[in-house]
Write a protein that binds this DNA or RNA. Structure first.
Lengths: 199, 199, 199, 199
DNA sequence: CATGAATGAGTATTCATTCAT
DNA sequence: CATGAATGAATACTCATTCAT
């Protein structure tokens, strides 16, 4: 009934969403006030409501956008993967690239998704997480069947180890330091494929 | 006159801290109100202030206790480790045990430490985290020097991959399910030592 | 420079005033927002200010128009009344007709006039109400003097009983139901003239 | 779950409810702010929430109490009425007494009930209003059957004329003036029984 | 030790209004 | 005439904290 402007993506909206994502990634959802966001955007907090229906609507839009983009990429990778090893590598590389491209959204997702998933209006988080999980586990299982990955180990658990290690880098990786997203990606691939041990 | 009651560690205090840890781990620090905690403890929120100076004091005590216990164990492990491989294994096993023993504290640490570390009164978080990091990286570096670990890879980055993968399990591991803390520990050790790839 | 547009009574103005009257009659003055009104009119709330100086100006215009039309009719009735009984009947019938013709204005008047009368800018409400009261009480008193109405009873109180019973019907009368404005008028006249009791 | 204190009627609660009823009766529900109420009670607006869950909860409690008391009295009257004439008289006298005893609640009911009845949480208004209507119409119909009231006229409409005329007096009756509640009651009974006309 | 009443600063949100385009 | 972005003040409500009892 009441027309949400969710679809008419003006630049101003995107700008504000970017600010919100950054602040929420830094401080957490409930520790970030709409005043904080508005102030950073150079307007009064009430004026935010010209663009968004609520604080909740903002984070929903951020998370929904993030997950949709991610799933699109993952789907493409899964569709084009020639073999499971290449598939897993591409998924990992894609995750690291995503950290480089939109660290705020990743950080926010990493910090808040678990809690928000239990809240009404965020059911999409569970649904899309499961689709992502299916893609990853599919590659891992295919690799085990093909004999390119070790047969022992629950793929669901392995997936979570990999996922958490990769996404968590967003908390400590700072561009411009000793490492790039690519170098971390490389190092992670080496570790995950061959392990720590020397032969 | 005003005597800090921090030392008279009555059972009631511990009970309340446990409740607080659990709630904060579930909902986050700022989303958990002192009323929530008091209600769960069966008292009124004002009465909490008979036991603790402030909400901040509660989380400080929780985190300080957690990190002190952890560091004590890590120090012991480092002191007794016969070789780097055994040392790393013991550290990883210790972390998984800690997840089993005090999941609330781990969860809370995992969710809130990064933000709280930037706040006044939480400087100890940075200090103790650095000591922990030193212990881990020491073992990794020793393993590389001894030739038991592959020489390539920045040990600081490897440490963070391992740390994040391990601690993050607290977010999805539920006792009583398909896996135990021990089985996850075992699977993780296999992955980290030998990697995914079949020989 | 700033010319009040009160005089250029475009159809659009009247249309918007009608919408405003209806909404305010339903929800009350302060519970009706200018956004509600604008939305119903198919424009944005800011655009209302092209037609009216303020929300207050809108309700002033509605009420002023309503009372002016009513007074005009009452004046005519009082001027033409051949005897007090006919006069009272005509006043009552006129009120019921008004309810049929402009129920929103009546409802809004019924709900809001008492409060608004105490607010600056609404002094006309008191003044016109008094003129109306004078007309009614004049007829009642004339009837008592002429012996056609019972001599006991304070005409001022009788007037208010009648006025409130009549105007209040706007709250529950719905056209298209069992009763018409005329049938209610008839029943009310019977009650007010002869009372409940059988002879 | 969350214990509403609705039942533990401290004096403070009653005092605040009285203030709220008075202000809301004067200005209307949405024009009365919780700040207004708190200020009049000599506390800060936030402190109101120690006593009541919300502004809505306050008006619900006021209206519920009012209607319950009224229905109790009406039920008693209907149970003890020896004949319909006496029954109607007692109902009317009871209403005028109620105006004298709790004018704020009556005024608030008169002004806000129609709108609030459409809102969630106020379903009891409709239910109790219908029970009241049943009692009144029962007496009117019994009087018609017994031949003590004129047979013409829809009792449902007659009831509403009487109800509105009586309750509306709360808007203009001021104690200490020319009339008392009793004298108004007397005058109203004379009008409603015998009508305006001299024999 | 606990209650219950209160504070005071803050939170998200609403709303009448303004104004450049 | 209308839009869309913004203001600024107000609104209901929350929450950590205090304190007399």
């Amino acid at each position: 009934m009441t027309k949400t402007k969710q679809e008419q993506s003006s630049e101003r909206r995107e700008e504000i969403l970017g600010i919100a994502a950054r602040l929420i990634a830094q401080r957490g959802y409930s520790a970030t006030t709409v005043r904080d966001i508005a102030e950073e955007a150079g307007i009064l907090s009430g004026s935010l409501y010209h663009h968004f229906a609520s604080k909740e609507a903002m984070i929903q839009e951020i998370l929904h956008g993030f997950m949709d983009r991610l799933l699109t990429r993952y789907d493409e990778i899964a569709a084009n993967a020639t073999d499971p090893r290449a598939g897993i590598d591409a998924l990992i590389e894609c995750a690291f690239e995503t950290i480089g491209r939109e660290p705020s959204a990743v950080g926010l997702y990493q910090n808040e998704a678990a809690f928000l998933a239990t809240q009404p209006g965020f059911e999409f988080l569970v649904a899309e997480s499961e689709r992502i999980e299916t893609i990853w586990i599919g590659q891992l299982r295919a690799g085990q069947s093909a004999g390119v990955f070790r047969p022992e180990g629950d793929p669901a658990v392995t997936y979570r180890f990999i996922r958490d290690a990769v996404w968590s880098t967003v908390r400590w990786y700072r561009p411009g330091g000793r490492h790039t997203v690519e170098s971390m990606s490389t190092q992670f691939l080496a570790l995950v494929h061959s392990g720590l041990d020397a032969d």
